[in-house]
Design a protein around this nucleic acid. Structure first.
Length: 453
RNA sequence: GGCCUUAUCGUCUAACGGUUAGGACACAGCCUUCUCAAGGCUGGAAUCCGGGUUCAAUUCCCGGUAAGGUCACCA
């Protein structure tokens, strides 16, 4: 069906923080190109001299690098002024554009701009997602296509660049549907071939309005890198807003997405960005990681976190390694570790906890004497247990569990867990003992017994 | 307001004339359990409204309604 080599492009403008919605547009362009052995172009649309900033360009470059959305070619529109000028001059010579005298109504406006001579006709184009769309361009008037010969504007530059770069498929957000007729008019004026269009449904915030650069309700894309999401998970999640391959599979690798992606299955209506589902998708991808990779990520977070580690002394890697599986169970992205450290949730692993004596009592309301009795039994048992047996939480469990069952598990295990963690919520006591080791465990139980005396 | 577009559980979606309208997230309950987390099971929850077409409409057509996009010397 497709004879020509497929060339797609994603063309963000570096005028603000890149927002997550843009990831999906980039992804679809990438997927479609890869799937068809085509070329994927990344083009920085920096024609707006006042608002474009190199740091914003660097930001999305860093983002795509992290996401693994590698472009085949990169262009910056400001480098292509001569090409734009060539077409603009030709359009003026041929009467498709003209110099227009203006009365400035806003600050910074010129008294002379270049306008497109609108032929005022109806344009019909076929959108791969939306179907046939007809627009009467008379409503558009003679729109401005350049401030002057040195400052061509968006509608002109996209058309020229897409044509010059041989772009075959323009896959972009639906906010551009009404721009398309303008751009087709320019194409006809410069005798450019018309690419195929696919206008993607918008990604909406909770209020059901388009996600944008200034939207505070959803963090900017690069934030997701900082918060420690898995790139493939973010891609997986974004891909499924507005498109679905049909089955009941929810988790996809990038190569599966390349294989299954199909423009004809793209949704027409916009979809709300659902952060909870992203958490779940991310966790699913985390589960597919090997233990080595997981441990490395977790230990990195502990060791390389600026500013949040002063209060806890980071123990040796052997200690952290024991902690890893517990941490893994409680997070859905690596950045959750920073959060947990930041709020002191993990302090008890590194320093003896402070807690109210009352917390040691199980809900069945035992006496201090009873609670103390159980802790003393455990203390004695552990003291007489060789260090070797602390290398495995199951072994530790076998030392205590029968006693706990006989005397009421809650009565025995709850105070033990509190003695070790100082918290009402924590991993089970056997795991805690295993992580802390014999000496620390004994010292904490001892401390609890003192509190009860 | 003009133009364009859209409409299935709260959310993301499956269904492309015939299904008890399926799945996932979230939520609730239960199981497991000393508390979390994880896991397992169960449950509530949807075709915007009104007309057609058809033996049969979530699905096709028309009209409402609602929502969104766009109307820059931004992209």
């Amino acid at each position: 069906m497709i004879n020509k080599k497929v060339i797609t492009r994603f063309a963000p403008s570096p005028t603000g923080h890149f927002h997550v919605g843009g990831i999906r547009s980039a992804l679809y362009n990438f997927l479609f190109a890869r799937q068809n052995n085509g070329t994927y172009i990344l083009r920085s649309e920096d024609t707006d001299k006042e608002r474009s900033k190199i740091e914003y360009e660097n930001e999305f470059l860093e983002l795509f690098d992290w996401l693994g959305l590698k472009h085949d070619l990169f262009f910056r529109q400001s480098d292509r002024l001569e090409i734009h000028q060539k077409y603009l001059k030709k359009m003026m010579d041929e009467g498709y554009a003209y110099l227009s005298k203006e009365i400035p109504t806003e600050e910074g406006q010129r008294d002379e701009v270049i306008r497109f001579k609108n032929p005022n006709k109806k344009i019909t184009f076929t959108d791969l997602i939306l179907g046939d769309i007809t627009v009467d361009t008379t409503d558009l008037g003679d729109f401005v296509i350049a401030r002057d010969m040195n400052e061509p504007l968006y509608h002109l530059t996209v058309v020229i660049d897409d044509f010059e770069m041989g772009v075959t498929h323009v896959i972009r957000g639906q906010e551009h549907t009404s721009n398309t007729s303008r751009q087709i008019l320019i194409q006809e004026a410069i005798r450019a071939t018309r690419p195929l269009y696919a206008h993607l449904p918008l990604i909406l915030n909770k209020e059901r309005v388009k996600l944008s650069k200034r939207d505070e309700s959803v963090p900017s894309a690069i934030e997701y890198k900082k918060r420690g999401y898995i790139p493939e998970a973010l891609l997986n999640f974004m891909a499924l807003n507005g498109w679905n391959p049909g089955g009941e599979q929810e988790i996809f690798t990038l190569s599966e997405l390349i294989e299954k992606f199909d423009i004809s299955q793209i949704q027409k209506g916009g979809g709300v960005f659902n952060p909870e589902k992203l958490e779940w998708v991310n966790k699913e991808h985390m589960k597919h990681l090997s233990e080595d990779v997981r441990n490395k990520e977790i230990i990195d977070r502990f060791q390389n976190n600026p500013g949040i580690n002063q209060n806890i002394k980071i123990k040796d890697e052997k200690f952290l390694l024991k902690l890893c599986p517990v941490i893994f169970d409680h997070i859905s992205k690596w950045g959750d570790i920073d959060t947990m450290i930041g709020v002191g949730e993990l302090d008890y692993y590194f320093n003896a906890p402070q807690y109210e004596t009352n917390l040691l009592y199980w809900k069945a309301n035992p006496t201090p004497e009873e609670t103390k009795k159980h802790l003393e039994f455990i203390l004695d048992t552990l003291k007489n247990t060789p260090e070797d047996n602390f290398s495995n939480s199951e072994k530790i469990k076998s030392l205590i569990f029968d006693y706990a069952t006989k005397n009421g598990r809650g009565q025995v295990l709850w105070p033990l867990r509190v003695a070790l963690s100082g918290k009402d919520k924590s991993p089970d006591p056997f795991t805690l003992i295993y992580i802390m080791g014999k000496t620390e465990t004994i010292s904490r139980i001892d401390e609890a017994i003192k509190k009860l005396s």
